[in-house]
């Protein structure tokens, strides 16, 4: 196990795309960690409520505000740092939940077969034809501004089918393997077979998909916030773009418009690159659908 890991790591280090992705990711992770620092220095660096007492309009970068201030005098740099934290939170938790669901459903469908399989897969088909962004948009416009965790949950609920299909296929092929038969003969329960014998084998694949899901979750949250349907109590990058857009600073404050957009794009890029690299290392046969979203 350890040896396999070291081998994989060596391969990974040779992979240029993986290296770029990992570097970017570390930078963003540092940003997220550092986001706790500015509010400690001065309450005006509090990303949501803190305003510079002397500045009441958007100003460009200065020593006091490295990326300038927004229209009510909040510090853009500390907002950007806080945005990194939110992006990680949204991306990873939504991805984790959808992968968890997808893996579980995929394994159950593949293992149980027949009616259960049929029902679950039709459900997957149905959810798969729904454009997630539009669905969240409809929900958030119908049921009021959604809380950030609700958004995360909805994204997760609509992003599992792709994964579950792949996991199901994997499970189907695992089911034919002799060791599952052996376990059955030995009297292992279904639950035990699924969790002890199948799960470890589909886990790498699930993890791989997780990196792609992180990407899509971050993009969906950002787009939603950008359109004005995000959680207004959260400082996310999409929210920052919404502010710059709605307050009419779009084409006048590049110091405000560019950083959040670049960050969203680069963070999704880094996860995606990481995913690609992992994919190439784990097994070239695993790719199929992952690249399509």
């Amino acid at each position: 196990m350890m040896g396999r890991f070291v081998g994989a790591w060596r391969l990974f280090r040779e992979n240029l795309i993986g290296r770029i992705g990992l570097t970017l990711l570390i930078v963003f992770a540092l940003m997220a960690v550092c986001s706790f620092i500015p509010p400690l220095i001065d309450p005006m660096y509090q990303p949501m409520h803190g305003v510079d007492p002397e500045i009441s309009h958007s100003t460009g970068p200065s020593m006091k505000h490295w990326l300038g201030t927004d229209f009510i005098g909040r510090d853009i740099f500390s907002q950007l740092l806080a945005g990194a934290r939110i992006a990680f939170m949204v991306g990873i938790s939504a991805a984790f939940m959808s992968i968890f669901l997808g893996t579980l459903i995929g394994m159950i469908a593949g293992y149980a077969g027949k009616t259960v399989d049929m029902a679950l897969m039709r459900l997957a088909d149905m959810i798969m034809v729904m454009p997630t962004l539009l669905v969240v948009l409809i929900l958030s416009s119908l049921f009021g501004q959604l809380h950030i965790w609700t958004i995360v949950l909805i994204i997760a609920l609509f992003r599992w089918p792709g994964v579950s299909r792949v996991i199901r296929a994997q499970t189907l092929s695992l089911k034919q393997r002799p060791f599952i038969e052996a376990a059955k003969v030995a009297g292992a329960s279904h639950v035990r077979i699924i969790f002890r014998h199948i799960t470890p084998n589909v886990l790498p694949l699930a993890l791989l998909y997780m990196t792609f899901r992180v990407t899509s979750a971050i993009i969906i949250e950002a787009a939603l916030a950008f359109l004005g349907f995000g959680d207004p109590g959260t400082v996310s990058w999409g929210m920052m773009l919404q502010w710059v857009w709605k307050t009419g600073h779009m084409f006048q404050a590049p110091y405000w418009l560019l950083p959040p957009g670049i960050c969203i794009s680069l963070l999704t890029l880094s996860f995606y690159m990481l995913g690609r690299a992992m994919e190439e290392i784990l097994d070239p046969r695993l790719r199929q659908e992952g690249a399509s979203d």
Binding site: I72, G144, Q145, L227, G228, F229, G230, P232, Q242, W243, K246, T247
Partner: peptide, 11 residues
């Protein structure tokens, strides 16, 4: 009201 409708009131 939501921010997309009126950012002033939301803020």
């Amino acid at each position: 009201p939501p921010a997309d409708y009126d950012p002033h009131r939301a803020i």
